[in-house]
Design a protein around this nucleic acid. Structure first.
Lengths: 255, 255
DNA sequence: TACAGAATCTCATTGAGTGAGATTTTGGGC
DNA sequence: GCCCAAAATCTCACTCAATGAGATTCTGTA
């Protein structure tokens, strides 16, 4: 099982997780199986490009380049660009946090978030992957995946018969909306609807989460309609004109 | 001038900037000088790890992995962790935005930011590099760099004699504070003080920026003192106990 | 100053990486 | 479904880049 150098260098970045934010060179060598000179060569490349930085205690951590690249990633993501005004409107209208969760590989990831109140509780700030099978944001996406995929996911939920989840997905599709009480964060209710790409694949969801008490005091029909409307508009926006053609026209000068 | 594969793959990420957020494979080949199979090999590695994603228009953009890695980078940066409560306090006390700007390579980068009002104007959101020689946040750092470095920077300012900047730095060091009116964003005033590491090197600054009118209505002595106090506390916090030793103790079990 | 750990250098070996050119896949228009 | 062009991948010969064992230097701390 040999791996390309281009993969090996990036495998260093895979080491970092919430559970382990700092790594000594020795631990990296042990886990990755790289010889010392090889590891340091790779670390030099990552340090020189800002992806890794020495930390005060002697180990290595992720570097500021990720902050820069995140800014560019935010700026280039049409979901974020088109979604931001909707998030702001929903956060202004409802007492909680409005956020966009993207389906990416086998992950659900919050990519943009607006809270009316800076102290709003959320266990899933921007960039932190969410549980795959729990929560409104995730389910609003999963419910629209191909049936085979859904069955695989239901089986992954393991100790249940697997039909509960499929039933839940059917209900979500009927309503065009997912609601979840305390599935991800105790005492927090999430209400979410899916966002589709131009091929009608679910790529993300828009979710409004709030404290259970605030949810009880909110007109849930109004909330549902607002979310469904926003996601419908977003889905249409994202299916819009080919941005690359537009880019080429402007790069080529006046038509 | 041959380059390691580990560098060549990362050079693809260097292509992306605010001026060019999307790249076709052909343009990448043209600019980087890679053959098509080589480029696609590298792109596959970057796609598989989430750093690059195909965009709807046919080109490639930065992928969601950067959002994830940014979350981890935020979480692991002691400057951000220690600084966040100070930012919140300052943003609560003064009408504007409190942010931390980090010195990183030859860049000044906002790494954390809190606004009292979500509509507060700033041209430099998190992750966007700031001009090197303008603005309070930058100058509060530059003023404490080694003298030789300062002179180089002053010379880089080119068409001036270079002494204005050195005089400005001297004033900043005398006051322990930098103030700048409209240097970065028209109509915005920034007030900043430096943050030092355990070797007394400037590594960052804490800046409060606000509209000129709000600045006039603010007790600038109170503002200055609040910023200086926060940066002093932060500098001491960042020079604190060796976090690696603490980590090792907890990893090793009860003492 | 001494010392231990971190980081870098040297060098022999080999197979990984590269790119020219060919082929397959994909998506859109009709 | 067909056609076509662009996107993406495959094949393969060649060479030099990458690797790691072992040695050496650098760095930070007591």
């Amino acid at each position: 099982m040999t791996r390309a150098s281009s993969e090996r260098v990036l495998a260093i970045l895979d080491l970092f997780s919430e559970d382990r934010l700092e790594w000594s060179s020795q631990d990296m060598m042990d886990v990755l199986g790289y010889a010392r000179p090889t590891l340091y060569r790779y670390l030099k490349v990552l340090k020189d490009t800002g992806f890794i930085a020495p930390m005060q205690g002697g180990g290595f951590g992720l570097g500021p380049r990720f902050v820069e690249m995140d800014f560019l990633a935010r700026k280039s993501d049409p979901l974020v660009a088109h979604g931001q005004p909707h998030l702001e409107a929903l956060a202004g209208q409802f007492p909680g946090t409005a956020f966009l969760a993207r389906w990416y590989g086998e992950r659900i990831l919050c990519v943009a978030s607006v809270s009316r109140d800076a102290r709003a509780r959320t266990s899933y700030p921007r960039g932190r992957p969410m549980p795959l099978l729990n929560g409104a944001a995730a389910k609003a996406i999963l419910a629209y995946l191909p049936r085979r995929r859904q069955r695989q996911l239901a089986e992954q939920a393991g100790d249940q018969s697997g039909t509960d989840l499929l039933d839940a997905f059917r209900t979500i599709r009927r309503d065009g909306l997912a609601t979840a009480h305390g599935e991800v964060t105790t005492g927090i209710v999430g209400t979410a609807a899916p966002i589709f790409d131009s091929s009608a694949n679910p790529i993300a969801s828009l979710c409004v989460s709030m404290e259970e008490a605030a949810y009880q005091a909110t007109d849930s029909t109004l909330l549902a309609d607002a979310i469904r409307t926003a996601t419908r508009v977003l889905s249409m926006d994202l299916a819009g004109p080919d941005p690359r053609k537009t880019y080429l026209i402007s790069a080529g000068g006046a038509p």
